[in-house]
């Protein structure tokens, strides 16, 4: 490389900027590769495995890798399994709507009506504190609340509103919906509050000075600006509810079978191929939901 010693820059010599860019890029890739490899090996590969095994042959207690669509055919022709898809979608839609309806007014209050920063933070912290209890304990806590001898029935009976305990409260779809709404609505409150609190106070003042009513201000300013929060919250809630099985397992008394419950019970009876089929169906549903939501907001910008 005698060219290096001459002062005239030769065309073959890379400019320092190119070299620096290349080193920076190499450094970024090196820093990134452990994470990417981890995610590929321990997330993408298992997910691929689920798809692969869904085409395996299921015998009574084992699977073998002879490819077949038998599991798929059985799954798609079974009213139980198809019913599980329906139940999953129904529970998801109701919980999503419920968390939004329950959570939005709270977010509106904390984000817009509470002016004091400290109070705002305190209220948000109060919403997050329950997360410091184990998820399973929070689920199980609904049993003494909703049971026939639970707190609600006891109170209602004491007040003389009902004479017989309400039996639909626990071990029903209702208890699953209530439990999920309570556990997941914070994921709706958080992002929406964040977006509403970010709205410039002067914009609302200006609108008020121009004589806009609260209804107009809400419709024209607050609601549109809070939409990214709603979407982010909806993504959180959807992803968690669609993959749920524990709440249904502990509060529905086996009356509600979500796709997650199907997977768990199939694995329990070593029906790996059926579990995999249910897993693929679940993946398709979740992918569709997230894709739809991401059409509306760019997650990377909102974070």
């Amino acid at each position: 490389m005698t060219a290096m010693t001459t002062d005239l820059p030769l065309t073959s010599e890379k400019s320092p900027a190119t070299v620096r860019e290349a080193t920076d890029r190499r450094r970024a890739l090196m820093l990134l590769s452990p994470g990417v490899i981890w995610m590929t090996l321990f997330m993408l590969l298992p997910l691929g495995m689920v798809v692969y095994v869904s085409f395996w042959t299921q015998t009574t207690f084992a699977v073998n890798s002879t490819l077949t669509t038998a599991s798929w055919e059985r799954f798609l022709s079974s009213p139980t399994y198809l019913g599980a898809i329906g139940t999953t979608l129904r529970i998801w839609a109701i919980v999503l709507a419920a968390t939004l309806l329950v959570g939005y007014p709270v977010a509106l209050f904390i984000g817009l009506f509470v002016k004091n920063r400290t109070v705002q933070t305190a209220l948000l912290v109060a919403c997050v504190i329950p997360f410091w209890t184990s998820f399973l304990i929070r689920v199980i806590a609904w049993r003494p609340m909703l049971g026939t001898e639970g707190a609600i029935n006891v109170i209602l009976q004491k007040l003389g509103i009902i004479s017989e305990p309400l039996t639909f409260l626990l071990f029903s779809e209702f208890s699953v919906l209530v439990g999920m709404t309570q556990i997941y609505c914070v994921f709706m409150v958080g992002p929406i509050t964040f977006m509403i609190a970010r709205i410039d106070e002067s914009v609302i003042e200006a609108a008020r000075d121009l004589g806009a009513s609260f209804g107009t201000i809400f419709r024209r300013i607050v609601l549109p600006l809070s939409m990214p929060g709603v979407i982010v919250g909806a993504i959180f809630v959807s992803v968690m509810v669609l993959g749920e099985f524990a709440t249904a397992a502990s509060l529905s008394g086996r009356k509600v079978n979500l796709l997650g419950n199907i997977i768990v019970s199939q694995v329990g009876s070593l029906k790996w191929a059926f579990a995999a089929v249910a897993g693929v169906v679940l993946t398709i549903i979740i992918t569709a939901v997230i894709t739809l939501a991401l059409r509306v907001v760019d997650l990377r910008k909102e974070m």
């Binding site: 002062d7 820059p9 900027a17 070299v19 860019e21």
Partner: peptide, 18 residues
């Protein structure tokens, strides 16, 4: 902190760029 696309930076006879 950045590098030039072309040209040389020389301090006391020694090239700095790169």
């Amino acid at each position: 902190f950045e590098e030039p696309d072309a040209g040389q930076i020389i301090l006391d006879g020694v090239r700095l760029d790169g």
